[in-house]
Design a protein around this nucleic acid. Sequence first.
DNA 1: TTCGCGCATTTACATAGGTTATCCTTGATA
DNA 2: TATCAAGGATAACCTATGTAAATGCGCGAA
Lengths: 259, 259
Amino acid sequence: MADNTGSNSADIFIAKFSSYIDLSEQEQEVIEALTQNSMTVDEGQDIILESEKSSSAYLLQSGWAIRYKVVPDGGRQIISFLLPGDIFGFRESLFDLSDDSVQALTPIIVHRLPAEKIAEICDSFTNLSLALTWARAREHAILAEQIVRLGRRNAYERLGHLLLELLHRLQLVDKAGSSEYYLPLTQEILADTLGLSIVHVNRTLRKLRNDKMIELDPKTRRLRILNKEALSERTGYDQSFLDQLGDPSRSPQEAIGSD
Amino acid sequence: MADNTGSNSADIFIAKFSSYIDLSEQEQEVIEALTQNSMTVDEGQDIILESEKSSSAYLLQSGWAIRYKVVPDGGRQIISFLLPGDIFGFRESLFDLSDDSVQALTPIIVHRLPAEKIAEICDSFTNLSLALTWARAREHAILAEQIVRLGRRNAYERLGHLLLELLHRLQLVDKAGSSEYYLPLTQEILADTLGLSIVHVNRTLRKLRNDKMIELDPKTRRLRILNKEALSERTGYDQSFLDQLGDPSRSPQEAIGSD
DNA sequence: TTCGCGCATTTACATAGGTTATCCTTGATA
DNA sequence: TATCAAGGATAACCTATGTAAATGCGCGAA
């Protein structure tokens, strides 16, 4: 299974961490070892069920997933999207407070990390431990952004803002063009993410299209953002928010050593 | 400054961590050492400014604070409340991605932890490092809950749900009676937290009062929840969500060793 | 004592967004 | 080829929540 051709499944994680943290040879090898055995999960399958304690964390190799909660009246709120290169479940693996579920939106490939393994690695490799901390901080920033979106923006801004964030995050892992990407989300999922009704998401998408902000082909699920500048301006999207979250153009030294 | 009378400023933190993690004598002493020099911050003062990099974390000894963001149009969204016993700023202290600000709502007392100190402690004391991880996980759960509140609940549910969460969190640090606590929040702050207008918060509070769900004396700022059961039911509040976040009644062994 | 300011309260009115229902397209399945 | 289900699009109507404006109350400053 292992290969040394220079492109293997560990690359995405190494690249992501390296944008902020200098990993030693040895640490990179650890990551490679961890990503040797992968499992696939089908679209629509739950990986972590609410209340079911999982004792593993997962590295998401490819595909999209959501973290969500169900509310008593049957509604669903999507907390965040998990994209290639993201890690999830380590919180739950340490404490039994997984109160949200994770579900694959597309077929996905993940690498499973047993809890003991994580603890072991954190003990032995400072930078990997730091990388984990960094991933958590990143996640926190994304959640905070989602709170602002829901609390202080209208439907148009929410949608535009989310689409920009996704573009940005996908670009960081090389899964998007300069203004275009594959968006495997139904309007229902957008609604459950943005706290809107399906109908209103539809209305709002139409408005975005009419305003020449986006093009979205429902067949191919290809989204193109026609005017990033205007859309960012219109939706209050702050480029710098995600730049901090691991822009590959920053040198690790600069990032770590600052202050 | 140190005292051994059995009640000192470290107690609140030790008690909080101990509900989930067994701290050694030595580790408790470290916490005590950390909480020896405190600083006070006045009501309305910012502790961490957006974009200003702070290289310290803080332990909140007493008083209330908010974590918030401002949106381009001048609005403010409160991300979360910081209550006695909470830790904040360690994320920002490690990476320069403090994109939200922290402000004291009441006069507060905090203990400052320089970044190096944190790193040093995490290296040397496994359980303290674990405690920190746990605090982060807790915070994450609270943010997720806030997202659900904003995304999938109406004004009445949002308010009731938040008031229950605050009761619950305050009880964990012994700052609330069985159904009553000091709530130093103006309606404007509630509005900025819940993504509502001030007027609507006012309307909704009235409704809660009329329904005999709460009593709130604007003079003393004393809030009493008259019927926890009914309010939890009505607002979809899940008792278990915060029970997991450090209920002192759980034995640490049970919590840690499970699985 | 009075002024002024922050905060709570209320009313009248405006609108963003929810609900319900129908129809269309497409693609999988029999 | 017919059927069915999922997702998208639209229209008519309804309501929760926002906006604007005015009023009152308490409290600290002069």
